[in-house]
């Protein structure tokens, strides 16, 4: 019997680590992975709450998140490949042409 707070706490920690990754890494691929990690942390919390309240809605929600994440990764990676092909570099700090 694990209290659900533990799961939510773990989810919070994982989420924070993902956020840290987004902030300190310059490799967009790793930033992307960090975002995936954050999504997973959120999913974990959702499933944990769902199992407490004995409802399938949490699982179904996570199912949708997984599907959407797959779509997002496909498009995101294709964009990265395109950027790499045109710029020969994918360091996010060099991609600042939208400067105000």
């Amino acid at each position: 019997m694990v209290p659900v707070d533990y799961y939510v706490g773990l989810s919070a920690v994982l989420f924070t680590i993902g956020a840290l990754g987004v902030l300190i890494r310059r490799n967009p691929l790793i930033i992307f992975m960090s975002v995936e990690l954050m999504l997973n942390a959120a999913n974990l919390a959702v499933v944990a709450f769902g199992s407490v309240y004995k409802t399938f809605s949490g699982q179904i929600f996570v199912f949708f998140v997984i599907a959407v994440a797959a779509a997002e990764v496909a498009v995101g990676l294709a964009l990265l490949v395109e950027i790499f092909k045109s710029k020969k570099n994918i360091n996010v700090d060099d991609l600042n042409s939208l400067k105000g």
Binding site: Q59, V62, I66
Partner: peptide, 21 residues
Amino acid sequence: VAIFYLLLGAPFIAMSQITVY
């Protein structure tokens, strides 16, 4: 995380997690 899902009684999501992610 998938194993956590199994612990939480969500085998379907656990397997989807492994397959997809």
